[in-house]
């Protein structure tokens, strides 16, 4: 053990004296390094590595082809204000990095779109879909004034706790209330919709594969079933739904509602607005979260720079040590 360590030590120090920071250690009695292998072994090793890489590549390509067996149509990526690729030409021209999704880093929700989306939800979707985790007070200073939000809440009737006589009563909503569900429970929802449960929309844009793009494409993806496709009684053909059959009929048609800011209410405009609104419902704190991330990127970069400089300063005397080897056994 000790002679081996001694031999290690000698080679280590002599290499260290050369000035490498990671000296290499060679032991001559085992073929531990590449350059000392025989010709045959080198060929064997190279072929082995090549074959492994080829096998890995084959496995990867087979895997990719398996993915195409999946019969789902993947939705395209749309330029959402808070997520997608921005297409403003002058901004893209100013940036050296065009591919980086700045919208994902510092894009916030579009207040006008949220306002229109709420109108679409209220007039079209609220008949069947609940939105249990959104309260009217969240709208204040996001896309409505306080008075408008109070008026919106007052349009809804909320069942409230026992009164002085012990009975539940109905009252108009307040800002603090959550948006009331159209049905009292899941069974009632199923009965009213032919056995299918209209899911709660509070998390739908993060709870479905494809996020907002999927929801938008689904709303726009209705088509006539191709020849040979048989649908059940309550089912409609949708290009993006898993299995292509969805229980919800197409809900958005051109001119279905009127927006209060005058935007033409085409079907795709309504689909985009309501999806944007649902994206807000799924992640209301996105704006403060992104601001925190931005702040913390700056702070951690500065702190990293400072810490790195100071560490190199502290380690300077150590890292640049040189060892002079003097063989005490050698007679001078």
């Amino acid at each position: 053990m000790a002679p081996v360590l001694g031999q290690f030590g000698r080679t280590v120090f002599s290499n260290f004296a050369k000035g490498y920071s990671h000296p290499k250690v060679y032991l001559s009695n085992t073929s531990s390094s590449f350059r000392e292998m025989s010709q045959g072994k080198k060929i064997l090793l190279t072929t082995g590595c090549f074959l492994t890489t080829a096998a890995a590549g084959l496995a990867y390509s087979l895997n990719e082809s398996v993915k195409a067996i999946d019969l789902n149509l993947h939705p395209p990526k749309y330029p959402w204000p808070h997520k997608g690729h921005r297409h403003e030409p002058e901004l893209l021209a100013a940036l050296p990095f065009r591919k980086l999704e700045l919208d994902k880093a510092i894009g916030l929700y579009d207040a006008a779109s949220l306002r229109r989306g709420w109108q679409v939800y209220k007039q079209v979707c609220a008949a069947c879909h609940s939105l249990r985790f959104v309260a009217y007070r969240q709208f204040v200073d996001l896309f409505m004034t306080e008075d408008e939000a109070k008026a919106e809440a007052a349009e809804a009737t909320i069942t409230d706790g026992p009164d002085a006589n012990g009975k539940m009563f109905q009252r108009p909503g307040k800002l603090a209330d959550y948006i009331p569900s159209p049905y009292p429970n899941e069974e009632a929802a199923r009965v009213a919709n032919g056995g299918a449960y209209p899911p709660d929309l509070s998390n739908i844009t993060v709870g479905r594969e494809g996020d907002e793009d999927y929801v938008f494409s689904l709303l726009r993806g209705y088509a006539d079933p191709p020849a040979g496709v048989e649908l059940g009684e309550n089912q409609h053909f949708n290009l993006y739904m898993q299995g292509n059959a969805i229980a919800m009929a197409q809900a958005l048609y051109n001119g279905l509602i009127e927006y209060d800011d005058g935007t033409p209410a085409t079907a795709s405009q309504m689909a985009k607005d309501v999806t944007h609104f649902l994206a807000y419902c799924a992640t209301p704190e996105l704006e403060s979260w992104k601001k925190y991330l931005f702040k913390w990127t700056i702070i951690s970069t500065c702190l990293f720079g400072l810490a790195w400089y100071y560490k190199r300063h502290l380690w300077a005397s150590l890292v640049y040590r040189r060892v002079a080897y003097r063989d005490v056994n050698k007679k001078h």
């Binding site: 980086l100 913390w296 990127t297």
Partner: peptide, 15 residues
């Protein structure tokens, strides 16, 4: 921390 913030900002979905 820097890596985490940068990855979340640009590349990885929050959820």
């Amino acid at each position: 921390v820097m890596f985490y913030c940068l990855m979340l900002s640009f590349f990885i979905d929050f959820h």
